[in-house]
Nucleic acid binder design. Sequence first.
DNA 1: GGTCTGGCTAGCAGTCACTGCCAACATGCC
DNA 2: GGCATGTTGGCAGTGACTGCTAGCCAGACC
Lengths: 225, 225
Amino acid sequence: MPVNASLSFGYRGRMTRDAQQEQRDIKERTGVGSVWERSRMLAKQEILETAFRLFTGQGFEETTIAQIAREAGVSQRTLFRYFGTKEDLVLGDHAEYGRLLQAALESRPADERPWTALRAAFASLAESLPYSPEDILKITSLLDTSPSLRARQLERRQQWTDLLVPDITRRLDAPSDPMTQVRAQALVTCALACSEIAVDAWGRSNGTVDLERAYDAAVAAVRAE
Amino acid sequence: MPVNASLSFGYRGRMTRDAQQEQRDIKERTGVGSVWERSRMLAKQEILETAFRLFTGQGFEETTIAQIAREAGVSQRTLFRYFGTKEDLVLGDHAEYGRLLQAALESRPADERPWTALRAAFASLAESLPYSPEDILKITSLLDTSPSLRARQLERRQQWTDLLVPDITRRLDAPSDPMTQVRAQALVTCALACSEIAVDAWGRSNGTVDLERAYDAAVAAVRAE
DNA sequence: GGTCTGGCTAGCAGTCACTGCCAACATGCC
DNA sequence: GGCATGTTGGCAGTGACTGCTAGCCAGACC
């Protein structure tokens, strides 16, 4: 049962291309056309597809690394070299996405207000993520079933906060105010929380709720109530 | 079932007594008077003190359960019976504190606005927590040194959210609005985030920053910026 | 006071995520 | 072809955590 290849890391294209074009694409994306690099990507993709199939089929906690490795045809040792933790199989390269988000925020006009800039940065990140809506639905439903997965995701979000706070600090008045750091942290954390709540609501509605409307409703509630 | 039945293990006695006798009985069966209970509490205390000493001395990750158990004079098996996870040694009974917070929130006037009620609930919880300021300082500094500890704490905070959302939902207008749930979640999550940011700032300042001022600054930033 | 019940304990074996190490092999470079 | 280097898999180990079991001992009952 072939799983949608859009699950694979970085893959955003269609499946209807011939192998040559595919290879050129890989070369383009990775910058390296070496056999090593290509087989690494194939293995990575195979592992991810196997993991997602097993996770959605029998649950995250109930699936062992040994099983994924066996069915993907690699050793456990290799699997852990590609994905540092079991949770990384679901959550992807959060450090990379964090950098994307940071870059998106820092590219906003310096005089844009915090909430405005953060909203634009989220929208920018959403466009550059290599996940299809179906992928996000799968991920969010997995998050709902595994506390450890949810914990790890919250931890990652915390790390994103540290990346975004410096920029937001610059957007605040009174930089000498000792509370400026606290204010920036609060803004970033709450914005990230609102985005996550919106994504979760979108996921639980099976994608019928409008994501931006949910986010705006969350932010409006926090600011107006 | 009597209210305090959950306190008594293996209650099998009669029901027709006056309150005073009942209390004496409970004390006998479950309370401080029983040898079992006393040794349980002593063991728990001994384990906690040993764990804190080792955690602060050599770090959370660098301390093993085996070491704590050995130095506290109990078996690992017993330690895990008292504290379900290594993180529980630091974080305490979060489920219990969650119930306290929920009760505090629900005891606020029904027409109080979400932010006001939440702030009062936090203040109430802070007063009923069994930690001294020194304890909190130790805990927050430990949180800063261990990602896994921080992750577990974020996970617990998520569980608190679920406890508080129903009450906040009732405080919102337009309960038929499909976004009401999202709005309530956003409010609770952001309020908890602000309180945590305030506590962290207080901890990093070694207790010199005023906790309530930090919380208010965080909330004000979120709402005004 | 003797006995019985049942909670509590230590200890052991086992699971699972994850890591360090090393030998074997593949690949890229010359 | 030969060497340096990257990659892999197996293996042994660690550390958190769980299930099971035999034995101990406080407390209830007679």
